[in-house]
Amino acid sequence: ENVVSAPMPGKVLRVLVRVGDRVRVGQGLLVLEAMKMENEIPSPRDGVVKRILVKEGEIDDTGQPLIELG
């Protein structure tokens, strides 16, 4: 899985990584606010952040691509 998608609709509060960062499975990639709760979205695998497809403050839909890993 190279693309991390939104598991729920919500607002992107914080992006915790930058392009080029090495990430490990379970590491937080970004924080979504949904139903007044903050949810940290973890990396599904080890890899390198290739692209960040959303910006802080954006509203996303379920299934929307958020981050691409390489």
Score class of each variant (00 low, 15 high):
Glu1His: 13
Asn2Glu: 11
Val3Ile: 14
Val3Glu: 05
Val4Arg: 03
Val4Thr: 03
Ser5Thr: 15
Ser5Ile: 14
Ala6Pro: 03
Ala6Thr: 06
Ala6Leu: 07
Ala6Arg: 04
Ala6Lys: 03
Pro7Ser: 08
Met8Leu: 09
Met8Cys: 12
Met8Val: 09
Pro9Val: 09
Gly10Thr: 04
Lys11Ala: 04
Lys11Pro: 00
Lys11Gly: 02
Lys11Asp: 01
Val12Lys: 01
Leu13Tyr: 03
Arg14Gly: 02
Arg14Trp: 04
Val15Tyr: 07
Leu16Thr: 02
Val17Arg: 00
Val17Trp: 00
Val17Glu: 00
Arg18Asp: 07
Arg18Val: 09
Val19Asn: 04
Gly20Lys: 04
Gly20Ala: 04
Gly20Asp: 04
Gly20Trp: 05
Asp21Met: 10
Asp21Gln: 14
Asp21Cys: 10
Asp21Trp: 09
Asp21Gly: 05
Arg22Val: 13
Val23Leu: 03
Arg24His: 12
Arg24Ser: 11
Arg24Thr: 12
Val25Ala: 13
Val25Thr: 12
Val25Ser: 10
Gly26Ile: 04
Gly26Val: 04
Gly26Trp: 06
Gly26Gln: 03
Gly26Pro: 01
Gly26Arg: 04
Gln27Trp: 05
Gln27Ala: 05
Gly28Ala: 14
Leu29Asn: 00
Leu30Thr: 00
Leu30Arg: 00
Val31Ser: 02
Val31Gln: 01
Leu32Asn: 00
Glu33Lys: 07
Glu33Met: 12
Ala34Thr: 13
Met35Val: 07
Met35Thr: 07
Met35Cys: 13
Met35Asp: 14
Lys36Ser: 14
Lys36Asp: 15
Met37Leu: 11
Met37Val: 13
Met37Ser: 10
Glu38Trp: 09
Asn39Ile: 15
Ile41Met: 04
Ile41Ser: 01
Ile41Asp: 01
Ile41Asn: 03
Pro42Met: 11
Pro42Cys: 14
Ser43Leu: 03
Ser43Cys: 09
Pro44Thr: 07
Arg45Gly: 05
Arg45Pro: 01
Arg45Cys: 13
Asp46Gln: 07
Asp46Trp: 08
Asp46Leu: 05
Gly47Cys: 06
Gly47Asp: 03
Val48Glu: 06
Val48Arg: 07
Val48Ala: 03
Val48Thr: 10
Val49Pro: 02
Val49Thr: 02
Val49Glu: 02
Lys50Trp: 11
Lys50Tyr: 11
Lys50Ser: 10
Lys50Cys: 14
Arg51Met: 09
Arg51His: 08
Ile52Arg: 02
Ile52Cys: 03
Lys55Gln: 12
Glu56Cys: 09
Glu56Gly: 08
Gly57Tyr: 05
Gly57Pro: 04
Gly57Arg: 05
Glu58Tyr: 13
Glu58Asp: 14
Ile59Lys: 07
Ile59Asn: 09
Ile59Ser: 09
Ile59Pro: 06
Asp60Ala: 15
Asp60Cys: 15
Asp60Pro: 15
Asp61Gly: 11
Thr62Gln: 12
Thr62Pro: 10
Gly63His: 08
Gln64Thr: 14
Pro65Ala: 11
Pro65Ile: 11
Pro65Leu: 07
Leu66Ile: 07
Ile67His: 02
Glu68Arg: 06
Glu68Asn: 04
Glu68Ser: 06
Glu68Thr: 10
Glu68Lys: 05
Leu69Pro: 01
Leu69Arg: 01
Leu69Ser: 02
Gly70Phe: 15
